[in-house]
């Protein structure tokens, strides 16, 4: 079998293996369906409750994507501001460092009180979670421009703003890319935790309600949808980042 085909088949083989183990554990343990439903039961729930799942998934996905977009935008702008203006760096950087130590989840109840049960509180939650890795990674990248490049730019008589835009920003893109990868991995956490704390829609809301009614198969189905979306989102972002910084692979 050629390597390309094997590479495509490998994830499916892993998935099939995991499902088989899951089914085997279920048979062996004889756990009742309301504790551990088998993959078939979950698949059934997935199909029969699909319209409901899709509606809630849509809400959660929107929250995640909005949070990701907003967090990326705010994080990039903040990092640029901190890197280019010394007074901002002096005042804002300590605040950022300290605030990073506060667990964002602890803010979830307050955000629900302030912004209500709707989407806004979850979007803000996801944005906050994404903001920090993006800001710190990008700022770090902007700060670590190869000194030789800056020397060269100075002897060329480069203007400050242009050096930032043509040299320091592109040089920091790989760092921003790693920050964005981390952010993408944590973004769904923000949205789901926000939904758990208080909401009227979304996969987190659906899971909480299914839990109260012992509909464990529905919980698993919701989890499955969330996992597929999260993994798909991660690989999409990973691919986009790699395409945006093609020289990174060449340099290695």
């Amino acid at each position: 079998m050629p390597e390309a085909v094997r590479r495509v088949l490998r994830p499916f083989a892993i998935l099939a293996g995991l499902l088989a183990i899951w089914q085997a554990v279920q048979w062996a343990s004889q756990a009742p369906a309301y504790i551990l439903p088998g993959p078939l039961a979950v698949g059934e729930a997935l199909l029969s409750r699909w319209p409901q799942l899709a509606n809630h998934a849509w809400v959660t996905f929107t929250e995640i994507l909005l949070g990701l977009g907003l967090g990326l935008l705010l994080g990039t702008v903040s990092a640029l501001a901190i890197a280019s203006f010394r007074p901002i760096r002096r005042w804002l950087l300590p605040v950022l460092v300290v605030s990073q130590a506060i667990p964002v989840f602890a803010l979830a109840p307050i955000l629900v009180v302030w912004l209500g049960y709707g989407m806004a509180s979850k979007v803000v939650m996801a944005t906050l979670i994404i903001y920090f890795p993006v800001t710190s990674a990008f700022f770090d990248g902007l700060r670590r421009t190869e000194p030789g490049w800056l020397d060269l730019a100075r002897t060329m008589g480069g203007k400050r703003a242009r050096i930032l835009w043509h040299l320091r920003v592109p040089a920091a893109l790989p760092a921003l890319g790693s920050g964005l990868r981390v952010a993408t991995a944590v973004a769904p956490i923000g949205a789901v935790v926000g939904e758990w704390v208080g909401s009227s829609a979304g996969l987190g809301y659906l899971m909480l309600h299914a839990n109260a009614r012992m509909q464990v198969d529905l919980m698993f189905a919701a989890l499955f949808v969330l996992a597929v979306f999260a993994v798909g989102l991660y690989f999409t972002v990973d691919r986009l980042v790699s395409r945006a910084v093609p020289w990174q692979a060449e340099e290695r």
Partner: peptide
């Protein structure tokens, strides 16, 4: 100032 070009041991080419 403005009359100098500089070349270092590292090529200092921008990889992008």
């Amino acid at each position: 100032q403005g009359r100098i070009a500089y070349m270092a041991q590292q090529d200092l080419l921008l990889p992008w």
